[in-house]
Computed example of a mutant assay.
Amino acid sequence: MSVINTEIKPFKATAYQNGEFIEISDADLKGKWSVFVFYPADFTFVCPTELEDLALNYEEFKKLGVEIYSVSTDTHFSHKAWHDTSDAIGKIQYPMIGDPTHEISKNFEILRPSGLADRGTFIIDPEGVIQSIEITAEGIGRDALELLRKVKAAQYVAAHPGEVCPAKWKEGEKTLKPSLDLVGKI
């Protein structure tokens, strides 16, 4: 059962951000766009490349009113240690949520039987509804710029009811208005 178009479930967790431990809950997501980026584990190989890519593009997400949350089943203490020892992870300014109880990973249906989270990305609208999901295999890294494009498309569709964004749509390009007149003409 997919969680697409469902409201996120309640959660509370501790995150590491900018030298501090902070509390994060589902209530913090309400009223703004959010992206949850699940990854298998701290101190691994593909994960730091993805999280650094997000860190390097974080300001672009913030300009769109989007908060990034990285999540793994490691603790917030592990996130701090990784942040303090890795050049790539040291660039992160967004919250790094620890999910050692697996509550959040289970809520998003991203938990593996091994107890690690899959590599999954969720775009969540201001009402707390999941608008996009991407899950990749262990060895396939994600691209922050492609995620940014998807966020812009989700925001556009939310702001323009009745319009949809076609494949490879970029901000400012033509959208579609599904109707009977359009059937068979694409």
Rank of each mutant, 00 (worst) to 15 (best):
T44D: 04
E59R: 13
D42P: 02
F11Y: 13
E163T: 15
I186C: 05
D125P: 07
V46R: 00
D181S: 14
E173S: 10
P40V: 02
T73M: 04
Y94P: 00
V3H: 00
S86R: 11
T136Q: 03
D143R: 03
N107H: 08
F61S: 09
K62D: 14
A81I: 04
M1E: 04
Q155M: 15
E146N: 06
E60Q: 15
A167R: 07
A13V: 07
E59P: 02
L145C: 01
K185N: 01
K63C: 06
E20G: 02
K150D: 00
Q131E: 06
V37R: 02
D181I: 04
T6N: 14
K170L: 07
S34W: 10
T121A: 00
C165F: 04
A153P: 04
C165K: 02
N18Y: 05
F38S: 09
T49C: 02
V151I: 04
A81V: 07
Q131W: 01
V183L: 13
K174M: 11
S2P: 13
K177M: 06
A88Q: 13
G162N: 03
T75F: 00
V46P: 02
A144V: 13
F21T: 08
T14C: 00
K63F: 00
D143E: 06
K174D: 09
K9H: 14
G139S: 10
D28N: 15
G31R: 12
Y39L: 02
H102V: 02
L56W: 05
V129M: 08
G90C: 10
S105L: 03
I8H: 13
L111C: 08
S114L: 03
E23F: 06
G172C: 10
K185P: 03
N57E: 08
S72G: 04
P48N: 11
L182E: 08
T175Q: 05
E59Q: 15
K174I: 11
E52I: 04
S25G: 04
W82M: 09
A159W: 10
